[in-house]
């Protein structure tokens, strides 16, 4: 029971950090960097930032832990592989 405020603080910190990752990783999409650089940043935002957010939610609301754990698993695996697939498919363009 005494640990609850600590957990709340920690989860708030994680949520804020995840939101920061979202903004920082999505912002370069508006710029003129190369496509692969944008994919690197997108990996930061979508995979790592969202994973931080899910961890924060997991610490705060632990009634729904199976759902959040499944979300964490599928998020990390699918988003990573998805970045790879996008990179490969965009590189296979014939000439440009």
């Amino acid at each position: 029971m005494t640990l609850a405020p600590v957990f709340n603080l920690l989860s708030g910190l994680l949520l804020a950090l995840g939101l920061l990752f979202w903004f920082a990783g999505t912002w370069p999409m508006l710029g003129r960097a190369s496509y692969l650089t944008k994919l690197h940043y997108l990996g930061v935002a979508d995979t790592l930032g969202s994973a931080l957010m899910l961890l924060g939610l997991l610490l705060r609301f632990n009634r729904e832990w199976p759902l959040l754990l499944l979300a964490l698993l599928s998020l990390v695996v699918w988003n990573t592989i998805f970045g790879y697939v996008l990179a490969v498919c965009s590189q296979a363009r014939p000439r440009s």
Partner: peptide, 8 residues
Amino acid sequence: TITPLTIA
């Protein structure tokens, strides 16, 4: 690919 500095 999960490390943000490298993509396979």
